[in-house]
Amino acid sequence: MHTTATHLTAGTLTLRPWSPRDAAELAELHRDEALRRWTSENVHDEAGAARWVTAQQRGREAGDRFSFAVQETPQETPGGALGEARAPGTGARLVGNVVLKYADRGSGSAEVGYWTAAHARGRGVAPRALGALADWAFTAFAHEGLVRLELLHQVDNTASCRVAGKAGFTLTGILPAAPPAFPLEGHAHVRHAPPAA
């Protein structure tokens, strides 16, 4: 079972398992109204964030939910100064979450999800993180026959359509509304494993 503390990279992004030390920053990120609108996570304060992190750790231990905190490390410009990502002297900052939901092990299919922090939107964080997650999933679970990943979102979440396309997911269909999780129709995007070499 893949319960190790896997770290993935995508340029300046690092994907790592969530930790209890992330609770305060996670609670702060969830003050964003747009983030609360598009996610179903019950994070209203630091205690709620700590419970959410614990749930992610349990999912990893069970082998059916692999959630990664996405961090961005400041990138130095050619002149040596830090870019706009962070002020000088500071380190990596949480910019989002990606998750592989793999409850039906051996089915050949799993679902992915993500969210991006307000301060990191519009910079390609989500497509890069989803791409790294998909590459890892297809490699880590190839022996189980994982060949298909789905990304689902409400039809009015046009930003998620753009993210899906940039991350290599193709729109394959419309899903009927399924309240309360999906009060409106949804889009289903799919990415298939690359052909074996």
Rank of each mutant, 00 (worst) to 15 (best):
M1Y: 07
H2E: 06
T4V: 04
A5D: 15
H7L: 03
T14F: 01
L15C: 02
R16N: 13
S19C: 07
R21E: 15
R21I: 10
A23S: 07
A24R: 12
A27E: 06
A27G: 06
L29P: 01
L29Y: 03
H30A: 14
R31E: 10
L35W: 09
R37N: 02
R37W: 00
N42P: 08
V43S: 05
D45Y: 00
A50K: 00
R51A: 14
W52G: 09
V53C: 04
V53M: 02
V53G: 02
T54L: 10
A55S: 14
Q56H: 12
G59V: 02
R65D: 12
F68P: 06
Q71W: 05
T73N: 01
P78S: 04
A81R: 00
G83N: 01
E84T: 10
A87T: 11
P88G: 01
G91E: 10
G91R: 07
R93Q: 13
L94A: 06
V95W: 08
V99P: 05
K101M: 13
A103G: 09
G108S: 09
S109E: 15
Y114V: 00
W115R: 14
A118W: 09
H119C: 03
H119F: 05
H119R: 11
G122Q: 12
R123Q: 13
R123W: 05
G124K: 14
V125N: 13
A129Q: 11
L130A: 13
L130I: 15
G131V: 12
A132F: 10
A134W: 14
D135M: 08
A137K: 10
F138H: 03
F138R: 01
F141D: 12
F141T: 07
H143G: 13
E144W: 02
E144K: 00
V147K: 02
Q154H: 09
V155F: 01
D156P: 01
N157K: 03
A164F: 06
A167T: 15
T172L: 08
G173P: 10
L175F: 04
A177S: 04
A178L: 13
P179K: 00
H187G: 04
A188Y: 06
V190Y: 11
R191Y: 09
P194M: 08
